[in-house]
């Protein structure tokens, strides 16, 4: 069979594993909200994979940008946090000590903030609680 050419325009795939993705999930959700919602609305129109390729490329490029910025600005904090998630079954509550520096760094340097949608008004978001009930057993 002859060499086949790629039917799709080139886009760099993320290539990130679950740890970095989960660590950066809220920053991606914060920065790429419009692209993500656009893509999901498009998927709602039709589930055919070729229907939303353009929107999908935008989503991937945006996430790529977030990861690149994060690695450029907060490499050490990012690395520590996602390594912690990898070691701790991907539980956010076991990695608050690693998460806080990452959040402050991302917010001060590149303006990404972690916000959980639908948190009750006036309630401390779960990732900022000082004395949580659920915490890692071994410190």
């Amino acid at each position: 069979m002859a060499e086949l050419k790629d039917p799709l325009p080139p886009v760099q795939e993320l290539g990130a594993t679950s740890g970095p993705l989960k660590s950066a999930a809220y920053f991606i959700g914060d920065r790429c909200k419009e692209f993500n919602e656009d893509f999901m609305l498009c998927k709602n129109e039709s589930r055919a994979p070729e229907h939303c390729l353009q929107e999908g490329r935008k989503v991937t490029r945006c996430a790529q940008e977030v990861l690149t910025n994060l690695r450029a600005a907060c490499a050490a904090e990012f690395e520590t946090h996602w390594q912690c998630l990898e070691q701790n079954n991907h539980y956010y509550y076991k990695c608050r000590r690693e998460e806080r520096p990452l959040n402050t760094c991302a917010f001060t340097k590149i303006g990404y903030k972690k916000e959980i949608p639908g948190t009750t008004e006036g309630q401390t978001p779960i990732h900022e609680v000082k004395m949580p009930y659920y915490r890692p057993q071994q410190k």
Binding site: G29, N36, E55, G56, T60
Partner: peptide, 26 residues
């Protein structure tokens, strides 16, 4: 607190759905 932790996890996954879906589509 457990419910909040669950919500945090769910939203993290919701934010990642479009990326994974786009990649799978391609």
């Amino acid at each position: 607190e457990k419910r909040e932790l669950l919500r945090e996890k769910q939203w993290a996954r919701i934010h990642l759905v479009p990326i994974l879906m786009a990649e799978a589509d391609r």
